[in-house]
C-alpha cells in the first residue's frame, strides 16, 4: 500500500469516526429534542403556563374534568384526588386540591408526575399553580393539601368533551 493511499484512507477514517461520534451525541441529543417535542404538543408539561391576557370564558360549553391519582406505590403514602368530577367552562379559572398523606414513620420526599388523556388535550391544559412543579417534603404522618390552579384554553377542540388529569407520585430514592 503506498503512502498516498494510506493518507487518503486515514482521512476517510477520520471523517467516518467523526460521523460515528456525532451520531452518538445525536442519540443523547434526542433526549432534549424529545422533551421539546413533548412541550410543543403539551405532553408531559410540568411548568407553570403564562396565562393568555385576554382569556375569555366560553360560557357556551363546559368540559368535564376527571381527576385521578395513581397510588399503586404501596402504603408509605397515599395520593388522593378530589372526589367527583367538575365541569368548568373553557377559559374559567379552576382550583382543585389533591391530598398527599405520608403514612410512614419516616419523612417523605418526592414529586408528582402529571399525565393527561386524551393526550392532545394536554396542550390546552394551562396550569398556573401545581404541586407537580416542585418537590414535596412531608414529615412522618403529615397530611398535605396541595392546590392545582388551571385554566382550560378556550381553543380546546370542540370534540373534546372529557379531559382526564392524572398524577402519579414518586418518592425520591425509590424506583
Amino acid at each position: 500500500m503506498n503512502a498516498d493511499l494510506g493518507q487518503a484512507n486515514a482521512i476517510v477514517m477520520r471523517r467516518l469516526l467523526l460521523l460515528a461520534a456525532a451520531m452518538f451525541g445525536f442519540g443523547f441529543a434526542l433526549v432534549p429534542l424529545y422533551s421539546i417535542f413533548c412541550d410543543i404538543t403539551g405532553l408531559n408539561r410540568d411548568e407553570a403556563q403564562v396565562l393568555a391576557r385576554n382569556t375569555q370564558v366560553d360560557r357556551s360549553r363546559s368540559v368535564q374534568v376527571q381527576m385521578l391519582s395513581n397510588s399503586e406505590n404501596g402504603d408509605r403514602w397515599r395520593l388522593l384526588a378530589p372526589t367527583g368530577a367538575i365541569a368548568p367552562h373553557p377559559g374559567e379559572l379552576v382550583e382543585i386540591e389533591y391530598e398527599l398523606d405520608n403514612l410512614s414513620d419516616r419523612p417523605l420526599v418526592g414529586r408528582a408526575v402529571p399525565s393527561y388523556a386524551p393526550a392532545r388535550a394536554a396542550a390546552y391544559f394551562k396550569k398556573i399553580e401545581c404541586f407537580c412543579f416542585r418537590e414535596q417534603r412531608l414529615a412522618p404522618h403529615e397530611k398535605l393539601r396541595m392546590p392545582v390552579l388551571f385554566v382550560l384554553d378556550n381553543r380546546l377542540p370542540a370534540d373534546i368533551g372529557v379531559v382526564t388529569l392524572s398524577y402519579t407520585f414518586y418518592a425520591k430514592g425509590e424506583s
Binding site: M23, F24, F26, F28, V31
Partner: peptide
C-alpha cells in the same frame, strides 16, 4: 451502520 449503531450505543448507555 455508522449512522445508527452509535445511537443504539447511546440508548443502551442511558
Amino acid at each position: 451502520l455508522i449512522a445508527v449503531m452509535p445511537v443504539l450505543a447511546g440508548t443502551i448507555t442511558m
